[in-house]
Design a protein around this nucleic acid. Sequence first.
RNA 1: GGCGCCAUGGCCAAGCGGCUAAGGCAGAGCUCUGCAAAAGCUUGAUCCCCGGUUCAAAUCCGGGUGGCGCCU
Length: 298
Amino acid sequence: MDLQLRGKTSLGVMLAQKLNGEVISSDSMQIYKEMNIGTAKPTKEEIKNIPHHLIDFVSPDEEYNVSKYKEDALKTINDILSRGKVPIIVGGTGLYINTLVNGIEFSDIEKDEEYTSYLEKISKKEDGVDTLYKMLQEVDPESAKVIEKNNVRRVIRALEIFKVTGRKKSDLDIESRKETPYEYLVYGINWDREELYDRINRRVDIMLNDGLVDEVKKLSNKYNISKTALQGLGYKEVIEYLEGKASYEEMVEKIKTESRRYAKRQMTWFKKTPGIIWLDGKDVNSMVEKITNDYIGE
RNA sequence: GGCGCCAUGGCCAAGCGGCUAAGGCAGAGCUCUGCAAAAGCUUGAUCCCCGGUUCAAAUCCGGGUGGCGCCU
């Protein structure tokens, strides 16, 4: 892909070169193998022999989540540090970065698929949403206050946690907050909104040109793609197109729109990341310089 | 030139005389601890213009403007 459109990727590589570091991805989709074009996964040429971790290691038919990420990332961070190098975490999944920055430690919670699918069934009934919310209010009123009734997914998760652990999600959340075990610097790349959207549109065109449709075709023939992998932006839209539910043009527009909205949500998310320092995306070299100076000054 | 149809927020679109003009999409803002490239929340108009009928009009009548279709 056009180097101009690789904001985070190229910055990560440059920093690693300068600071004797290795890159850890924090991208919930680049973890998947064989999902390359749609996730804009960095290529061998791009990473220039800089080790990249937590990329390309999960099968598309497997599910993955924050808790696993936290565990994998922590292990990798410690490994890199033990070798005297600098871990450089690069990626756009705010939730994943959040758990590292805020030192959240997840407790072991088993899954109870039978129970959740039972709850999902309820949610589809008439007034099911209200029913579930009432259940949550009885069992864990604190969580009910924080979670919106219509956010069925989170209501179900809170109920599941109570069923499996016998404890309230609201309590577990408080207990999970630990001291961050290392020092860190966080940076966000800032773009003019118009410019950002223009870059996104161009990037989507390139993906399609590079064979996104083919990639998805192959994937869906080979795998029963997991719930998480299927959420990848671009993938679900191409599948709709392949199933004849949308025209090619509709698909393209949908991917672009959804990508723009995703970028917007990212901005909202990172705005409140504690200690975040914003950099101007237009000038890679000055970004590298700024971060390097900050790091040495520590 | 004649006849017919249409004209509601950026786009699509309900409404057919009487509560503060549905809804969807986009946009903007936001929430966020186990599917997060996900899920959810908040947010906008007096209805093309002018005149008339009526206690009351986006909704009826007349004229104008614009668009679409047909005819000569």
